[in-house]
């Protein structure tokens, strides 16, 4: 059943990617354009399909996959279906790093890659703070508390940066970036995001037995010979790489990491280890479809991708709280 689900989601991702490549204000022959782009033929079709739509589609897929996978892994590790990847503070850390580049023009030699790289550095610093705070007792309950504290600190620092914005335009630009988008980002961004998603994904994937063992609690996982503390660190590190790289490139694309694993969980028999791949595929599908919707809206009222996912995700979150409340009445 899980294999069938993966194939189905994979097929839907391919269809969404094809629709995304064909979506835009200018009508072009996509396959022809891509073929021309690959052969370096100078044409508008080649430019639009190869330089604009292809990176946008691939970035949407990778950002969504990173968010979905990180959400599934963190929910499994922390044994809590309401955990969102932003809980461990890495998204805020990435935003803080990127904000530094906006305001203080750091790393100018790196050009357009300065911001995502600074985002990754910010995410890494927050991760180090998280590991330092949770210490040798890096167990799920401690991680949640440390994550809340660190994400509050990162949010406060981000507020300080916004407060001391050098000019209103810089602030506006940062706020727009924070709203989340995969538009106007070249193929260069993929060179940063793809290895990060592969590395983070492998770190998480390697710990899937621990995720299953943790279903019955840490004591049982320990008694099954699983390395809860060490494996937990790998999961947190993998998630930080996934979230940090996705946020530093696309800004905040919220709720994907919360909603996608939650929707798919019953379809994999609630097994946290079997939820990883479907969540990555589901996340890729949701973000790609959301980006297609964003592009289909009138250009004079541009809606950012992160705003759309938050608008769609928040009612779902409310429904989850409602459902949980019903259980206690």
């Amino acid at each position: 059943m899980v294999r069938g689900l993966n194939w189905l989601l994979g097929l839907m991702v391919l269809v969404a990617a094809a629709v995304s490549m064909d979506s835009g204000r200018i009508e072009i022959e996509v396959i022809n354009g891509l073929w021309q782009w690959l052969r370096s033929i100078d044409s508008s079709a080649a430019l639009i399909s190869g330089e604009i739509r292809l990176p946008r589609t691939l970035l949407a897929l990778l950002v969504g996959a990173a968010m979905g996978l990180a959400g599934a892994a963190l929910q499994g590790f922390l044994r809590n279906p309401l955990v969102d990847p932003s809980l461990i503070g890495v998204s805020q850390g990435a935003a803080l790093g990127a904000a530094g580049v906006f305001y203080f023009n750091l790393l100018p030699a790196l050009g357009i890659l300065a911001m995502p790289l600074a985002g990754l550095i910010g995410a890494a610093l927050i991760l180090l703070a998280l590991i330092a705070l949770s210490g040798s007792m890096a167990r799920p309950a401690i991680i949640i508390m440390a994550g809340l504290a660190i994400s509050a600190l990162a949010s406060a620092l981000l507020a300080v940066v916004l407060n001391f914005a050098p000019n209103p335009y810089a602030m506006q630009e940062l706020v727009f970036w924070l709203l989340g988008s995969v538009a106007n980002r070249g193929i260069d961004y993929l060179y940063l995001l793809l290895p990060a998603v592969i590395l983070g994904g492998l770190l998480v994937w390697h710990q899937r037995r621990l995720l299953l063992g943790l279903s019955l609690g840490e004591q049982v996982a320990d008694s099954l010979g699983l390395q809860v503390v060490r494996g937990g660190r790998f999961i947190i590190l993998g998630c930080a790489i996934l979230i940090g790289s996705a946020v530093s490139i696309a800004g905040n694309v919220g709720f994907v990491g919360l909603v996608v694993p939650h929707l798919l969980r019953p379809l994999v028999g609630y097994r946290p280890d079997r939820l990883l791949l479907p969540s990555a595929l589901g996340g890729a599908l949701v973000v790609c479809v959301a980006d297609i919707l964003v592009r289909s809206l009138p250009p004079e009222h541009e809606l950012k991708l992160g705003v759309l996912t938050a608008l769609a995700g928040t009612p779902f979150f409310i429904w989850l709280v409602w459902k949980e409340r019903q259980r206690w009445i």
């Binding site: 044994r79 809590n80 037995r209 299953l212 063992g213 943790l214 279903s215 019955l216 609690g217 004591q219 049982v220 008694s223 099954l224 010979g225 699983l226 969980r265 028999g269 609630y270 097994r271 946290p272």
Partner: peptide, 26 residues
């Protein structure tokens, strides 16, 4: 050596088969 702790609860609605198969994790 296997341990069955006093208090056990599954975080997820796993099937009986999946719970029992966790005994094979080691």
């Amino acid at each position: 050596i296997a341990l069955q702790p006093q208090f056990l609860e599954s975080a997820w609605a796993l099937s009986v088969h999946d719970i029992v198969s966790m005994g094979r994790l080691p």
